[in-house]
Design a protein around this nucleic acid. Structure first.
Lengths: 190, 190
DNA sequence: GCATTAAGTGGAGATTGTCTCCGTTTGATA
DNA sequence: TATCAAACGGAGACAATCTCCACTTAATGC
């Protein structure tokens, strides 16, 4: 890769990161201006807005994933803290939430997305092997909840509700309800 | 309302319902062509794509909601069957999923959305009063999961994963884990 | 150094989808 | 059947995305 190409690419990513961090809503072409390059250059490096967002966050997401997979804690703890940590990270980076949809939908060729799902699947498998979560839970179901968190950013109480959703999910993952659901046997006549 | 206005409005809704049912991805202006009216007429009746989608689905969603609230079954059963039923309905109407985002984000002036959330809140309150779900669960957290289901439509195993997500949610709502989460006390050394 | 050239650049303008505006038509009312 | 406010239609303004290609520049060989 030629030196000027790399320089431009990095300038674009840096400009995009700055804009995302302030949660600015920019037209795609504006990222080119911000980086001081032409739109042609922008499009050559990043064919879509999602590709750009991925370049900005891929590193961080993958780092989170690797930290979790390398964790020496029990599988249950690793899974719990990964999910809570991921949600905290998303809450702190609204722009990531706005593109999480694409990180989560695997059809796009974005490494961060499949990496996220792979990590969750691995942590769940380990936790299930330890018996601390049910062994019939689908990683995809967890992805769907994360997706919901990412795309609910415009709700008034987004952070609180997101954390609540994760807690419900973690509870639901517990090993004690292979049958369960809402405990209808307790139904009183009220 | 003038007769021709009503006729046009109904023609637009009918055309939109037909297009949605086939999950066609139309430009907004095309709904006007399909209904045989001008774009001006389309925009006067439905300022946004979401308003149109709401007109198509509001009735059905509100009907689902009212049926659930009128249910004479125990609150736990009503909540369970409402959530499962709603997901089934969404799975059967992909186009609804695509606009669920807006039905779920309350800033938009769409009656169906707040109606959905109000229904969930009410069913949850009743179930909590009966003691069949925890009383500290936020309706918003449930909305987030529904939102996730709606916006995960492009995932390969969307239906299965969506149902799995609802089951996890229902399990998590159960009354037995006021503390809980993943049961770390069971952690073995493995 | 200096030519060669493939890789890279920039931005004008094509394209596409959304939305507005206003001259014309039509249904309701008396 | 005259009146007029309500409703209509669609040309075209507008906004965002994306392509294309004439020009520039870094790398390579001599």
């Amino acid at each position: 890769m030629r030196a000027d190409a790399r320089r431009n690419r990095e300038a674009i990513v840096a400009a995009a990161r700055a804009a995302f961090d302030r949660d600015e809503q920019l037209r795609f072409d504006d990222f080119a201006d911000r980086a001081g390059v032409g739109v042609g250059t922008l499009y050559r490096h990043f064919p879509t807005r999602e590709a750009l967002a991925a370049a900005v966050y891929q590193g961080e997401v993958i780092a989170l994933c690797e930290r979790a997979r390398a964790s020496t804690r029990s599988a249950g703890e690793a899974l719990e803290s990964f999910l809570r940590g991921f949600v905290d990270y998303v809450l702190a980076h609204a722009a990531l939430a706005r593109v999480l949809a694409d990180l989560v939908t695997p059809d796009v060729q974005v490494t961060g997305g499949s990496e996220l799902e792979r990590t969750i699947a691995e942590l769940m498998a380990r936790a299930a092997a330890e018996g601390v979560i049910r062994d019939d839970a689908l990683p995809g179901a967890v992805m769907i909840v994360l997706h919901g968190i990412g795309s609910s950013i415009d709700r008034p109480h987004w952070p609180r509700e997101s954390r609540a959703a994760i807690e419900l999910l973690l509870d639901g993952l517990g090993p004690d309800h292979r049958d369960g659901e809402v405990d209808s046997s307790r139904t009183s006549g009220t």
